[in-house]
Design a protein around this nucleic acid. Structure first.
Lengths: 329, 329
DNA sequence: CTCTCCCTTGAACACGTGTGCAATATTGCA
DNA sequence: TGCAATATTGCACACGTGTTCAAGGGAGAG
């Protein structure tokens, strides 16, 4: 029953010009006389005219929508990423079509297909891994595919990776400096490539240094998982260091260690995280962690939107050690 | 240079049928023989056909996009809300066009106009306040407008409100029960209606009870603001209770009180928040707070999408007191 | 005044889809 | 088999826009 929107025909009629003139008035760089332009703008204003982006998109067979696929958007890391990305897109004059995968394990293929249907120019995958068939289809249809923190085994897609290896190495070095003898690695059971890389790099550095490590892997990537890890791991009183592959788990681990297992951090136990989410700097935690710059990450994504199709640019987001108060000096 | 997407003409040609048959195959409840349907589906599969939603939308002059306007998406409360909303929309077969207002104070009118251009069926305003002219335009063009936690002075828009009055009253009662003599109210300088309502309701209950109150108002709605509030307020050693109108500020306040101002919570000082964000239940805080159910809120928004246009349904999201460990028993 | 050149304008087409309408094929029944 | 009723199909149109093309008009130079 919706009343129809005002169209360019209505505006043209009111302004006493042709529909082409209206279209040209709203098209950058088209040729319109100042007089006509003025009349059109006034008529449009009075009628409340809004360009129909659907028709516009149909015409040049592509919308300027950017599809964003994510999951667990309420986790601080994801939320921050989405926040900055959506702001950046808007500033560039592109719109953000958000598809939330509800479950990190669920197949994101249907969501990407949905984005195809809207003729989006680009797809940003914040979490989950697109199947190869979809990657091919993107390429075939001229859709830019940008994958974050997920290593795809091909050379025609933009990939943006936090420098997990360097970060995990930094963490390992720091715990060695702190003099840790037996170190726990806490990771989730979801086995995302990012977490696997961090875990593996850390382990290999530690092993090479002859430090004893114990890997704990279970549950989803949440605060509660970190808490549980602390409760189970810290029965072993020899453990004097921990690397949690994600800040959110590190915070849970910290709380478990201090409040449930009676450890003093950093005196008895050194804890280090990864990501530098906002909560990591809160006074109750002051978590020493590996930061990856959200600004750099976002900029990399936005820059990737302009890259030529089919070429592969792998951007490494640099990491830095943020020294706070959970590792012994 | 984008290769064109496959169209229904291509599919029709391959399947050896008319284009209408293709359209009907993908239209619920249209009349197609099983034989034709099979051929069409196979051809579509082989060619990788995807309906063009832009054309579809142009045809029935409306997309099934739902515009979502928000700001500060990385704050836990917002993030959680957006997370659940986007999942709910997807489940209903609607898509989420996300416009991030970057700044809570910025004018959201241009964003809403953008949504108009996409011929969205509905607009959900998570934060910020739409100007009246926009509200009128929504009504005129058959766009459902749903405003959250913002009281509009009109009777033709759906409004969803957390029951701030009841919540603030609960908080006040609880602090009275705890025996507080002098109570601080911590709120931000952004003066959102929600915060103003909570602040005012709390104050009036306390004043009526003869309890001394001191209102602190400054800065944005952040953790740091809460921290600052604690540092400034708690120089006054008579203050033995605090109501922070938002959990995120309450957590900052708690940290400031304990770590910087040396207060014991809940022994010396009772603190109560509002929203029940995930972090409130973390072991380091265990914040007593007023919870508004995110589930109920989300359901209310989704339900509002189906309401008839122009009628006003004001939904109050009920609140409950979550008793944890920051108020004396 | 005439010719040329450039700026402006309107008509017509294409984009890809859903659907009303009329024509045709199929089924059910006697 | 014959007839009516029903199911299926194809044609053509509408949705609102950007753009090409040819035509019109005005200005400047000779």
């Amino acid at each position: 029953m919706a009343k129809a929107f005002v169209t360019s025909v209505d505006v043209a009629q009111r302004a006493g010009v042709s529909r082409s003139a209206v279209s040209r008035t709203f098209t950058e760089g088209a040729s319109v006389s100042p007089d006509v332009r003025r009349k059109v703008l006034q008529a449009a204003q009075e009628l409340g005219y809004r360009v129909n982006r659907l028709a516009q998109g149909l015409n040049n067979s592509s919308s300027n929508l950017v599809g964003v696929v994510g999951a667990n958007l309420s986790l601080p890391f994801m939320a921050k990423q989405l926040d900055m990305l959506s702001i950046g897109l808007l500033r560039r004059g592109q719109q953000c079509l958000l598809l939330n995968a509800a479950d990190a394990r669920s197949d994101i293929a249907p969501l990407i297909e949905l984005i195809f249907e809207f003729r989006a120019r680009a797809i940003v995958v914040l979490s989950g891994e697109p199947p190869m068939s979809i990657v091919d289809e993107c390429l075939a249809n001229g859709v830019k595919l940008i994958v974050i923190n997920r290593q795809l085994a091909r050379s025609d897609t933009d990939i943006i990776l936090s420098d997990d290896i360097a970060g995990a190495t930094l963490a390992a070095e720091r715990l060695k400096t702190a003099g840790c003898q037996k170190v726990a690695v806490v990771t989730s059971g979801s086995e995302t490539p990012t977490q696997l890389r961090r875990c593996e790099a850390f382990s290999s550095v530690m092993t090479a240094a002859g430090t004893e490590i114990v890997v704990w892997r279970d549950g989803p990537t949440t605060y509660e998982t970190g808490l549980k890890a602390a409760r189970e791991l810290l029965c072993d009183r020899q453990i004097d260091g921990a690397f949690c592959v994600t800040d959110i788990m590190a915070l849970g681990f910290l709380d478990g260690a201090r409040n449930d297992m009676g450890r003093l951090v950093p005196e008895d136990l050194s804890v280090i995280g990864f990501d530098d989410i906002p909560q990591a700097s809160w006074r109750s935690y002051e978590l020493t962690t590996i930061a990856q710059s959200f600004e750099v990450l976002t900029e990399a994504v936005l820059a990737a939107l302009d890259h030529e199709l089919g070429q592969s640019v792998i951007t490494n987001v640099p990491v830095t050690l943020i020294e706070r108060n959970t590792v012994r000096r």
